[in-house]
Design a protein around this nucleic acid. Sequence first.
DNA 1: TGAGAGAATGAACGCGTGTACATTTTATGT
DNA 2: ACATAAAATGTACACGCGTTCATTCTCTCA
Lengths: 346, 346
Amino acid sequence: MANRKDVAKLAGVSEATVSRVFNNIGPLRQETKQKVLQAAQHLNYHPNAIAQSFARGKSNNIGVIVPYFQKVNLMSTHYFSELLSGIGAKLSELGYGLLLLYQSPDESKDYVKLFHTQKVDGCIILGSKDVPGEVEALDKLHQLQLPYCLVNQTFSGYPFHSISADHLDGSLQAVSSLIMQGYKKIIFLNGPTEFSNSIDRLKGYETAMIKAGIPYNPKFVFQGNYSLKSGYLAARGIASLLPEINAIFAGNDRMAIGLMQGLSEQGYQASRDYALIGYDDSEISSITSPPLSTVHVPLFDMGQLAAEKVLQLISQGTMTVIKEQLPVTFIERASSQLRTPYTKQS
Amino acid sequence: MANRKDVAKLAGVSEATVSRVFNNIGPLRQETKQKVLQAAQHLNYHPNAIAQSFARGKSNNIGVIVPYFQKVNLMSTHYFSELLSGIGAKLSELGYGLLLLYQSPDESKDYVKLFHTQKVDGCIILGSKDVPGEVEALDKLHQLQLPYCLVNQTFSGYPFHSISADHLDGSLQAVSSLIMQGYKKIIFLNGPTEFSNSIDRLKGYETAMIKAGIPYNPKFVFQGNYSLKSGYLAARGIASLLPEINAIFAGNDRMAIGLMQGLSEQGYQASRDYALIGYDDSEISSITSPPLSTVHVPLFDMGQLAAEKVLQLISQGTMTVIKEQLPVTFIERASSQLRTPYTKQS
DNA sequence: TGAGAGAATGAACGCGTGTACATTTTATGT
DNA sequence: ACATAAAATGTACACGCGTTCATTCTCTCA
């Protein structure tokens, strides 16, 4: 493997000059540049990335932390895929590498160590939860002013850098659309409350109800874990309420679809017997029967933005706290428009 | 940031000894080890990963190359997610990092450069296609005996390292199951033939037909691009044949589901009017109505195996060509079992 | 108690690059 | 032609670690 010394010798210049050519630094005679480039090409020389990282004291990699579940593989959702693509697109555009880090639930979270070992210059944390240990780990990151960014998760009381979407508004729009159709009793199938976005959706649900003068009834709030199966399982409990109520809002599309299936096995069909709205606008939502009303979340853009912000933190050193919320869009499809409304309303 | 020198000074030993402690090398007095570890802890010392890579001459990272499409984001399929998870699980188990590399279609493929720059010690290539330039790039990798592994793609005439699944058998099983039910005219909605696994499936389809003494009819073979939409669009052409035929085999679940939706808009329902089989056993296949018959592919295992093999190539230097094929399993669900069979058969 | 062997530790260098500083070359104006 | 500044290039070292080889220490046995 050819190195700088070889190129310098072949081109008849010093190593520093080779370095200058490859980094476009300082005044250089055009003729010298050509000599060096030719020599480099002849030797098939490429600067050694590790040595560069070493000399520069930075890895040029961004770590992306993804939760890893052995059974319920969240990666199979379009959620992480979209975020990852957004992040990857922006990073490679700006010459950074993407180090994918699966976080096993058992091992202790030590984000700071990633920086100590210089494996990454910054990190983006996906799917973090409000569980013991997490806040402390993040706080340490923040206190040390290390470049990081959370995605779709906030922690009340802690001014962590984060990119999220306006899930309160999303739920509000979704639930309001049901209310406007005349529904007063609306079931909400929420995700785990360790995710702040679950809490945001709950707030949106409550807000919509209160706005409409409908009292908040905790009996109508169910909880799943965002998996297809949990939606399917929730069908049992929800079915018993269906004669009374016929509007459901689910925290994501997967639960909504699982629920749809579970309810159909009990004889209830979406858009015929009850109105249903999902969340995320995953690809599949548009082709269920009936097509699923949902809320579009700009995941790709969020990923891009998070990457951008982390790189800004890296280049600008410190910075005011990042806290951006991207807008979401309610998408009305057939599932939330009951063909025979009011028939079972109280 | 503390370094080895600081630890050595505080512990009152030489730098070499610190190194020995952290690498568990050579005979060490227990007492010395403790001193060093305490000093390290006190200074919050962690060996610098970049410097280690530099000194050892290897990055300790494996590059995973993933195709990147701006519009049709393949990452949103469970296909890449499962593979990635498998790879990630195995790599982190063995102490390697996963560098995710999105391959833009425009830029020239130069896998070798990744090694020249020392960014990775090996690479795993997902979703490569048989297009001009690809074979040459791979051949160069192979000639230079660099550690790499293809997943789910082979190139006839080239003994590239690869891990795949037995898609010929998968299709054979699927199509045979239709034949055994009495269907003689079976439509095959294939994916792009630049993927060797598409070709394998076609062979499986043909083999099953020939085995049953049914002549191969190219009129019954359609082509999509593995996207939901392409399945949906294929519905038009296929619908015109449905009065005559009523069994369809699709190259993946997404196309099958798109097709199902498209055909339902024309009044045809799976399992009532036609039998349908998909491929991949993606999560969604089990909850469509009717549940989709499909072929399970052990993607997670394939990812793990590919990672294992690349690491073997790294540690053992050269090696005989890797060419493993994992078995697949046909999963029969309602969609392929016509409720009123033979009614429209010729 | 002293020699010898083996255990334990230290000293020194290389890995390939970035870069501050020193030096040489070239251009400019007289 | 010469002084001067600016442009172009060279020299030398640092970065943090792995590792080889040399050195010191410790223990055993006579």
